[in-house]
Amino acid sequence: MPQTIPIEHGLMLAGILFCLGLIGVLTRRNIVFVLMSLEVMLNASGLAFIVAASRWGHADGQIMFLMILTLAAAEVAVGLGLIIQMYRRFHTTDINVLSQMKG
């Protein structure tokens, strides 16, 4: 049994997670689930960076992961603020309600 992890399996895991997040973004109508699926997609891209960093033995990929982490944190803070405001105005988290923008 090989003791090393094949790199393509790590990248496959990242791709599968990314596609699952994409399916979530495309199918869900609840904006909270859309935001959660976006988190999954960001996390999958971070995983790809970590796999690449491990392949080349450099720390640069981990730095990119840290940047993605920061971006995800800021995005979630703004997104949840928007969700709270939306729930106050429309009393729903259905994104179809927002399809008509009036001022």
């Binding site: 090989p2 992890i5 790199i7 790590g10 960093a53």
Partner: peptide, 24 residues
């Protein structure tokens, strides 16, 4: 998404590196 994933996996198919995890 399945088509996208299939393309991605197809690209990865002829890409074989054994990863020796070096702890960073």
């Amino acid at each position: 998404s399945g088509l996208l994933l299939a393309q991605f996996l197809n690209v990865l198919r002829d890409y074989e590196f054994e990863l020796v995890p070096t702890e960073i």
